[in-house]
Amino acid sequence: MTENATGRTAKPSIYDVARLAGVSHQTVSRVLNGHPNIRESTRARVEAAMAEIRYTPNSIARALATRRTRRIGVLVDRPEQYGPGSTLRGIEEAARAAGYTVSASTVADAPDLGTDAGVAHLRMQGVDALCVIAPRYSTIADLTRAAHDLPTLLVTAEPADGVLTVAVDQYAGAARAVDHLLSLGHRDILHLGGPLDWVDARVRSRAWSDRLAAAGLPARPPVIGDWTSDFGYEVGRRPGALGQATAVFAANDQMALGLLHGLHERGLRVPDDVSVIGFDDLPDARHLLPPLSTVRQDFHALGALSLTSLIASLDRPVASSMIEPELVVRASTGPRASA
């Protein structure tokens, strides 16, 4: 700390950092702005000096110098659902680590919470770029109009023309779930699908039908749900809902949880009578009775990839990418019972 003309302790400046680190103030500025042509030893010395005197960069001055606010706007469709909400948390954590701030806006069906209103709200905050967690086709369609001139990244399982996208590979995850059931001898596998307007739901359903077709097996029409445990419960407790199926691939863990409850009420044993596998790997999935086989999505990694890809895209073209999911086998799936 230094003292100003009034004798009060002044906030450390970039010049104080430069003196302590033994470099010019221009070098400190380059370190602050992430300039690539800085030796690592110099960068480390400057960062150590900033930490020692508790220097905090002036974000307004830096924005004027770089014409960037280091603020990312995140438009979140359906944040109450586990996937979108978890992805947002991953983005926020990665942004803090990268020295960025996040402004988030929610998209819902209410007129004042639509895509246009959300993008306008984020524009007013001077965001450098926009990350859209867009699980629904309708949101993606609206976004094309609302954010056409703003650097944008979509978190979605289906690539969009001319837009940078990142995602967990939903098709690969669903295929692994179905292949797991097939490897256990199941030949009649019911799919409890998600809402048809959700990209992930359609991709998972397509993988289910493709894997059955590849195995030479027919696919009965999927049962379309709403992602909730209550829906899965109603399916599980309704006589005849499963037909002759010996296994169920639920499009998310919440519906799988309800399904387990409903099957238990009917006196059906999992996995002895029916095998059940979900998707997401909710934090409590391993504590269900029985512990749920599922497909794990690494939302922390997805959020980090979204943030780093979007920041990089401000300076150079960046390719769309996907994260591999992980099959997690627990006690809710087992071999098909002998006829």
Score class of each variant (00 low, 15 high):
R8S: 13
V17Q: 05
R19H: 13
G22Q: 13
V23H: 11
S24T: 14
N33A: 13
P36C: 13
E40P: 05
T42L: 11
A44M: 07
R45H: 14
E47P: 07
E47L: 15
A49M: 06
A51H: 12
P57G: 03
N58A: 07
A61V: 01
T69I: 03
E80Y: 04
G83E: 02
T87M: 11
R89Y: 04
A97N: 10
A98E: 14
Y100D: 10
V107I: 14
A110T: 12
D112H: 14
A117F: 03
H121Y: 12
L130N: 00
I133Q: 06
A134G: 11
R136C: 03
R136I: 01
A141C: 00
D149A: 15
V155G: 03
T156M: 00
T156E: 01
G162T: 11
T165G: 02
G173S: 11
V178T: 12
H180Q: 10
S183G: 14
L184M: 12
R187C: 03
I189Y: 01
V199S: 03
A201N: 11
R204Y: 01
A207H: 05
W208N: 04
R211F: 02
A215K: 06
P221T: 04
D230Y: 02
V235G: 02
A247F: 07
A251P: 02
Q254I: 01
Q254K: 10
L259G: 00
L260T: 06
R266K: 11
P271D: 02
V276D: 01
D280V: 08
D280S: 11
P283I: 05
A285T: 07
L292C: 02
Q297P: 01
S309W: 10
S309I: 08
L310H: 07
A312Y: 04
L314K: 12
S321Q: 15
S338N: 09
